[in-house]
Simulated scan of single mutants.
Amino acid sequence: MPVDEGGAVVAAPVTGYRLILPEDWAHVPLREGTEDAVRGILDEAFGRIPADSPPDSVGPFKRELERRLRGVVEQVRESGALDLYLPVRSVGDVNIGASVVVSETLLPRRDEQAPPVEPTDVAVQLLSRDRATDTGTGTGTDTAAEVDLSSGELDGALAVRREHVAAADPGRGAELASRRVEYVVAVPGDPGRWFTAAFSTVGGGDPRDELADALVEWFDAVMATLRWRRA
Rank of each mutant, 00 (worst) to 15 (best):
V160T: 05
D155C: 11
Y183N: 01
R180K: 04
H164M: 09
R172Q: 11
V117L: 11
F61E: 10
V76F: 04
E78Y: 09
G152H: 01
G97K: 09
L69V: 14
P60C: 01
V94S: 01
V76W: 09
R63L: 05
D93F: 12
R109F: 00
R161I: 06
A167H: 02
S90C: 00
G171K: 00
L86W: 05
V165I: 15
V100L: 11
D148T: 09
L126W: 00
G173I: 08
V101W: 02
A166S: 08
V94I: 15
L69N: 10
D142V: 10
E64W: 13
D134A: 12
V117F: 06
P116R: 05
R131G: 07
A174F: 14
E146N: 12
L127W: 00
L176H: 10
K62V: 03
G173W: 02
E118F: 06
A157R: 07
R162T: 09
R129M: 14
P60H: 13
H164A: 14
S151L: 03
A167F: 08
A132L: 10
S178G: 12
D142W: 13
N95D: 11
D130T: 11
P116I: 05
V117W: 11
V117R: 09
R131A: 07
P116G: 06
E64V: 15
G138I: 06
D155K: 11
S79A: 13
D111I: 08
L158E: 02
V165E: 13
V181D: 06
T105V: 10
A167S: 12
E175H: 03
E175T: 15
D93C: 07
L154P: 05
R89V: 03
T143A: 11
V184F: 02
E64Y: 14
T143D: 10
V181T: 06
G140M: 05
G59A: 10
R110T: 00
T141K: 08
L86T: 14
S79I: 10
R68S: 12
L158H: 00
